[in-house]
């Protein structure tokens, strides 16, 4: 029986270290109970079973994992793939870059705004070609 979560509209861009470790364990091997998830987390960063259980509950509420009740326990699986999570994170980065909230955290090679049209880019390319010609076939 699949139990529906009550709230699933929380952005996954606030995943903590432990949440990422739990997601990693579920991506590696889906349909695990909390005990298995706990044992699949690297030993040097292994939390207690209770902590893993509450982390799974949090991830379930965030809509990143789903669960099936088997007997008295739940088995969990990732409902959000690694690439989906990354794509969502990249989307957040792009939006945060736009409104300047990431300006002191990251530098991107070119800005992500569609601030130049094709004609402007063509004009710039023509300028570069002319400069190249002036310099003698590309050598600077």
């Amino acid at each position: 029986m699949i139990k529906k979560r009550s709230s699933s509209n929380v952005l996954p861009n606030t995943l903590g270290e432990l949440e990422l470790l739990v997601m990693e364990a579920l991506w590696q091997q889906p349909h695990q109970d909390a005990k298995n998830v706990c044992s699949n987390i690297p030993r040097n960063r292994q939390p207690t079973l209770n902590t893993v259980q509450s982390t799974l509950e949090r991830l379930y509420k965030k809509g990143l994992v789903d669960r099936i009740k088997t007997g008295h326990a739940y088995t969990y699986y990732a409902s959000f793939s690694r690439s989906n999570l990354l794509a969502r994170l990249m989307g957040d980065v792009i939006h945060l870059l736009h409104d300047g909230r990431l300006e002191t955290i990251l530098s991107s090679f070119v800005n992500v705004a569609a601030d130049l049209d094709d004609k402007s880019l063509n004009d710039l390319e023509a300028l570069i070609a002319k400069k190249k010609q002036d310099l003698g076939g590309g050598a600077e």
Binding site: H98, G100, V112, A113, A114, D115, L116, D118, S120
Partner: peptide, 23 residues
């Protein structure tokens, strides 16, 4: 810049204000 413009992600012109036409 062309790669980025071809991708559906970029937001409409004018969002960045001062940093426009940076490239």
């Amino acid at each position: 810049k062309r790669l980025l413009m071809a991708h559906p992600a970029p937001l409409p012109m004018g969002v960045l204000g001062f940093a426009e036409r940076e490239v």
